[in-house]
Computed example of a mutant assay.
Amino acid sequence: MSTQEKQKASHNLYGVEPYQVAKGEEYMSDSMRKHFIQILNGWKQELMIGVDKTVDHMKEEAANFADPADRATQEEEFALELRARDRERKLIKKIDKTLQLIQDKDYGWCESCGIEIGVRRLEARPTADLCFDCKEVAEQKEKTVGKG
């Protein structure tokens, strides 16, 4: 693979090229929504493959070790994998919620202030529901509350 091909591949979002907004195109047009559906479905598919691999790995690796240290090591490894899968399960739910927002034509606008979140921000974080400014304010509030 050439350097140019590697750069192009690294800019793909789950097999989808970055969106090129046409001059005068309305925000969250049909083609823009289709673009984000492709990204979200690709992301979800990737997560689900990971879940399947974990289940297969745990079935293959499950052993009843006689040595308590070996058994504890395996149990800790499985616990870490399960925590990671739980985070991914929650992310899959968020992806499904986002796909529903797209279907309802409510996707792409900040839940806090109502402005456009923006195509590039949504490509960076397709499940984003706050614009950059509102997200910063929310994070500052979290830091302040966390210190109290």
Results as ranks from 00 to 15, higher is better:
L91Y: 06
K135W: 03
C110V: 07
A69S: 13
R33T: 00
T54N: 13
L82Q: 14
S112M: 06
R85F: 00
L91H: 07
T127S: 12
K147P: 03
A9F: 03
L40T: 01
E76G: 13
H11A: 12
G50Y: 01
V137G: 04
R125M: 13
H35N: 01
R83E: 14
L99M: 05
E26K: 09
I49C: 05
Y27W: 02
C110T: 12
E142I: 03
E5L: 09
G42Q: 01
D52W: 10
A9M: 07
E5Y: 05
T144N: 09
F78D: 14
R121E: 12
E76C: 07
W109D: 00
L13A: 05
I37L: 08
H35C: 04
V16Y: 03
K34Y: 08
I49E: 07
L101E: 12
R83G: 13
Q74K: 13
M1L: 09
E81W: 06
R33D: 03
K105N: 13
P18R: 04
A63Y: 13
T3W: 08
L80C: 08
S2P: 00
K105G: 00
E77M: 15
E25S: 02
K97A: 11
L13V: 00
F132Q: 08
F36D: 03
Y14R: 02
E61W: 08
K34N: 14
P126H: 08
L47Q: 02
K141D: 12
K53M: 10
F36V: 06
I37S: 02
C110K: 07
K135Y: 04
I115V: 15
E116R: 01
E111N: 15
I117W: 03
M1E: 06
H35K: 06
V119T: 11
V137P: 07
K94V: 05
M1K: 11
G42Y: 00
V145R: 15
T144Y: 08
K6N: 05
K8F: 05
C131Q: 01
E25A: 00
E46Y: 12
T127H: 03
W43I: 04
D133V: 15
M1Y: 10
V145Y: 13
R125K: 13
G50D: 06
G146W: 08
H11W: 05
R89C: 05
R125L: 14
P126M: 06
P126D: 04
A138P: 02
R33E: 08
S112H: 10
S29F: 05
D129S: 10
A138D: 12
F36R: 04
E25V: 01
S10V: 05
L13Y: 02
K147L: 14
E136L: 15
A9C: 03
G108R: 00
Q100T: 11
H57R: 15
E136P: 07
S31Q: 13
E116Q: 08
L80P: 06
R33V: 01
A63S: 15
C131R: 04
S2M: 05
Y107L: 01
F65I: 02
A124E: 09
H57K: 15
A128H: 03
R71Y: 07
G114P: 04
I37V: 15
K6C: 01
F65W: 14
T98C: 06
E75S: 14
S29Q: 06
K105S: 05
A138M: 10
D30C: 08
K135Q: 10
